[in-house]
């Protein structure tokens, strides 16, 4: 069964629960989220021979990595090696650029995300994304969360959903008295947590984060990192970061990317391992040079 095929879409019936609550367990969820844990594979996402093209240019070559459920996976590597491109391949975001194509497979709960019957819009709310620059809607804090849930057919009590999402994003205490205020009036760190709360509102399984803290000050950065540790109990997180200390602090697994083919300027994952191994005793000399700052 294609778990996220168009034929499975029942938006009006799907969302009536608050994420991260007991109510969720009883909710009417039609997708893999509703599978009992023991039936879920250890790897929520997995790439097989993944190559990504912008037109004729192959930006990423032959990536084979698993993404473990309820873990944080960091993708590190020098600029221009295809980290963000790889991240965007996990929720078909690359397709928003014309001329993009892929080879190989990205398996989500064992099913190919790029199968012709799969709806990319469906993919993107099952696998949410948080960007480098906080980008809240120019609406109230409340609406930032309610809006997405509403158009995705959430039919439960909206106040409860907004509160649950803001609490999970560790923002509730700071904004509970000003929910009608514009999301743009918040500080950068708060805006980023609002964007995370907004992602949670549509009950994703995986949250992709592209440099989520690079525009934030150190305290706001640490808040996001702490939040990630909380979120991984219920979600799987994949983060792209240039900050190696951040990757070392927050992630469980690390994928090191590097340009391998100088002629084609194509990036690939050269080493994938437990984060502790990558930062204390990497196997690949290029990873060693990169994490010790001798390279890139």
């Amino acid at each position: 069964m294609a778990i996220i095929s168009r034929s499975d879409r029942r938006p009006q019936a799907r969302r009536s629960t608050v994420p991260g609550t007991a109510q969720e367990a009883k909710g009417d969820l039609v997708m893999a989220q509703s599978l009992p844990n023991h039936e879920k594979a250890k790897h929520v996402l997995e790439t097989k021979g993944l190559g990504i093209y912008y037109g004729d240019f192959r930006a990423v070559t032959n990536v084979n990595i698993p993404i473990r459920r309820h873990k944080i996976t960091a993708i590190i590597g020098p600029s221009g090696c295809g980290k963000s491109t790889l991240l965007r391949a996990f929720n078909r975001m690359n397709e928003l650029f014309t001329g993009t194509s892929i080879e190989g497979e990205v398996l989500f709960d064992g099913e190919n995300l790029y199968d012709s019957v799969v709806d990319p819009v469906e993919v993107r709310y099952r696998i949410g994304m948080v960007f480098q620059k906080p980008n809240p809607f120019p609406k109230s804090i409340y609406e930032n969360i309610a809006w997405g849930a509403r158009i995705h057919g959430y039919r439960g009590k909206m106040d409860d959903l907004v509160e649950a999402c803001l609490r999970q994003a560790a923002l509730w205490d700071e904004v509970k008295d000003k929910l009608k205020q514009s999301g743009l009036a918040l500080s950068g760190g708060q805006q980023q947590r609002l964007c995370i709360a907004r992602t949670l509102a549509v009950q994703p399984e995986v949250i992709l984060m592209d440099e989520p803290a690079s525009a934030l000050d150190p305290i706001a950065t640490l808040k996001i990192e702490e939040l990630m540790q909380e979120l991984k109990k219920n979600y799987t997180i994949v983060i792209v970061t240039h900050n190696m200390q951040q990757a070392a602090r927050v992630s469980d697994f690390t994928a090191m990317m590097m340009l391998t083919d100088r002629e084609a300027h194509s990036g690939t994952v050269i080493e994938y391992d437990d984060t502790k191994v990558i930062f204390t005793n990497p196997k690949d000399k290029r990873t060693e040079d990169y994490v010790t700052g001798r390279f890139g």
């Binding site: 020098p78 600029s79 221009g80 340009l259 100088r262 300027h265 040079d289 010790t292 700052g293 001798r294 390279f295 890139g296």
Partner: peptide
């Protein structure tokens, strides 16, 4: 796009 190598950047952490 830039490529990197240890040879080019050998002095990257000279102070360290």
């Amino acid at each position: 796009m830039t490529t990197y190598s240890r040879t080019e950047d050998a002095m990257l952490r000279k102070t360290f």
